[in-house]
């Protein structure tokens, strides 16, 4: 395709092609500090292509696909091209990654040990990981945590952090405008803005760590900490994984070991400050 870029995030390399220059230019700018992988063989190809020939110029409309795609994926406006590229990369990982167990989770690291946070969209896991990354933790990823089924380690996947609605200003205030991408108005998920992780997160993106604490955060509720049964934790983690079934027995072994060894809590919080205090306390007590 005419416009393209190759990016490496953690262990995965993506070749992204686009029918339009804008999404590629935005990626080049926001991923400028990531390793230069021109001339690499990519693990995945992502394509941002017109829904049909006319739609390249007339009310341009992006169909996201690639090596792996969804036939019924809804097209997106060209104004949201950066988001489309990010979604295209996520789609490849979710459907095609086989070298680790993929957990839909954010993760941060301290002293070589990893805090994993998993929950639905809107749970606050993404924002929390971004903010912890500015408060003495190393940011490892806001979307996917990669569990190595052999060693039990969590590996980073520190792509741009995708911030939604109210989280945008909170994080922009904390990290400064220079690390923020363009505001994407009124996407299917509301307003979205991307944040570039700190340079240490990018520089150390090949270094994993052993998981020491698993949290199920829930933003917007009165402060509370709950324990969960191992069976429930296992079920929630298989539901948070897109490749548990595809990996077969190694995933069973890796995930059951994770559940048996890593202490876990569900936490509810109404503010960022409340969440930081809970995380610090639980890390102190359990990790």
């Amino acid at each position: 395709m005419k416009h393209n870029i190759t990016l490496r995030i953690g262990p995965a390399t993506f070749r992204i092609g686009s029918a339009w220059p804008q999404p590629i230019a935005q990626l080049a700018q926001l991923y400028a500090a990531y390793p230069d992988v021109r001339g690499a063989v990519a693990d995945f190809t992502v394509r941002l292509q017109p829904t049909n020939l006319l739609r390249r110029v007339l009310r341009p409309s992006i169909f996201i696909t690639g090596d792996h795609g969804l036939a019924d994926a809804a097209p997106m406006s060209l104004a949201h091209g950066l988001l489309a590229a990010e979604m295209g990369m996520n789609l490849q990982m979710a459907l095609g990654w086989r070298r680790h167990l993929l957990l839909h989770a954010s993760s941060v690291e301290k002293d070589g040990r990893v805090l994993v946070m998993t929950g639905e969209s809107g749970s606050g896991k993404s924002t929390l990981s971004a903010l912890l990354g500015e408060r003495g933790w190393r940011f490892m990823g806001d979307e996917f945590a990669l569990l190595d089924c052999d060693s039990g380690a969590i590996l980073p996947f520190p792509r741009l952090v995708s911030l939604k609605n109210r989280a945008i200003d909170v994080v922009a205030d904390a990290v400064g405008e220079a690390r923020m991408g363009p505001l994407l108005n009124a996407t299917a998920k509301g307003d979205i803005r991307h944040m570039v992780p700190r340079s240490d997160a990018v520089a150390r993106m090949d270094q994993g760590g052993m998981p020491a604490l698993l949290l199920f955060p829930r933003f917007g509720h009165a402060a509370d900490v709950r324990t969960l049964g191992q069976g429930e934790i296992f079920m929630r983690l298989t539901q948070a994984s897109t490749n548990y079934v595809a990996l077969g027995e190694p995933a069973f072994t890796g995930l059951t070991r994770f559940v048996r060894q890593v202490p876990a809590r569900a936490i509810d919080f109404a503010s960022g400050e409340e969440a930081f205090a809970m995380v610090d306390r639980l890390w102190e007590e359990l990790a």
Binding site: G229, Q230, G231, F234, E249, F252, T253, T256, V259
Partner: peptide, 13 residues
């Protein structure tokens, strides 16, 4: 099957 016990549950792979 490979079995694994989690609390009061048993998983069979």
């Amino acid at each position: 099957v490979t079995a694994c016990i989690l609390d009061d549950l048993t998983l069979f792979y």
